[in-house]
Simulated assay, not measured.
Amino acid sequence: MDIKQLKFLIALDETRHFGQAAARCHITQPTLSMRLRNLEQELDLPLVNRGQRFEGFTAPGERVLAWARTVLAAYDGLQAEAAACRGNLVGTLRLGVVPLSSFDPLPLLHRLHGQHPNLRFELSALSSEQILEQLASNRLDIGVSYLERLDTERFESLALDETRMGLLYDQRHFDFGDQPLSWETLAELPLAALTSGMHFRQSMDHNFHSRGLNPSFLLQTDAVHQLLQAVHGGLCCAVMPLNGGLDALTEHLRLAPIADAHTLAGLGLIMRRSAPRSALAEACFALCRETS
């Protein structure tokens, strides 16, 4: 068994296709299949359900896959730790961010890349629960999530700026002037929103309901880009983070402030406390502390 076989297994899980997994790993499909069969023989377990095409993993395969991710994360962490001891940072910083947070990760990534040119980044949009779960299982190095009910014995955090809310609209279709908008005004507008269950949506609903307002949403979606498309097309407006920079995406988008509007919980940078803790995560935290 070697690290490459585990990488092949993970690539197959992520692509769900033998040919695409082989292409991602820069090998031929017969080579990928042979190496996975070798792994099955070594473990004396069937891992993959095969037919005309990939048909998923067996029950033992799913369990081996979970261990493969853990082993590969430890291997990558070992490489990064060794490089950090030499004064360098290498590898991939895995960062998970909740949808519609006011935290823009790009300035942080720019600074890290400037200091450590060999560093790479993997950025995922995840729910608060997914971020904590993947931090705990060492599938993420850093999370940007809400600090409400955070288990401080398991996770270390660095508070970020408060997330304030604004109304995103296309000025070709709407005009709200310069004054902060009231929630009563918003309740009369055609609105789009993230589906219920996400923290930003819960905060928005709280602001409406605490004032006795029950807006009817024209569009609900779990994809932020669809919200942006609907707003840019003039179909509706959307409550968004005020300082998220979304109004800079095109010349027509504007963000109007909303009076007394912020999320229910504060946002923070989060990493696990227990070892093995990524050297990349610690470097990221240190840089954020310097600039906060």
Rank of each mutant, 00 (worst) to 15 (best):
C85V: 09
V98G: 05
L89A: 11
W67N: 13
V90A: 07
L100R: 02
G61N: 12
N88P: 00
L89G: 04
A84G: 08
P60Y: 13
C85W: 08
A82H: 11
P60R: 13
Q79G: 07
G91R: 01
G87Y: 03
L112D: 08
V64K: 09
L93Y: 03
R69K: 15
G87K: 05
P107Y: 03
P117H: 13
H110D: 15
V71K: 11
P107S: 01
L78A: 11
P107M: 00
N88A: 15
P107E: 01
L106W: 10
T70I: 05
V64H: 07
L112W: 02
T70D: 10
S101H: 03
D76W: 00
W67F: 09
R69N: 04
P107K: 00
V97N: 03
G91Q: 05
N118W: 12
L112K: 06
L89C: 10
P107W: 04
A82W: 06
L109S: 01
R63I: 12
A80S: 14
L106H: 09
R111I: 04
R86H: 11
A83G: 07
L112V: 05
H110M: 11
N88T: 11
P105G: 05
L106T: 12
A73L: 05
R69E: 04
Q115R: 15
N118H: 14
E62A: 10
R111S: 11
H116N: 14
L112M: 09
A80F: 00
C85P: 00
C85I: 05
R86C: 12
G77E: 07
G91L: 02
A74N: 11
A83M: 04
W67I: 15
A66C: 08
L108C: 01
V64R: 09
V90I: 15
A82Q: 14
G114F: 01
A80N: 04
N118G: 12
L109A: 02
D104K: 10
A59G: 07
R86Y: 07
D104Q: 11
L106K: 04
G87E: 04
R69S: 02
G77K: 01
H110W: 08
G91N: 05
F103V: 00
Q79A: 14
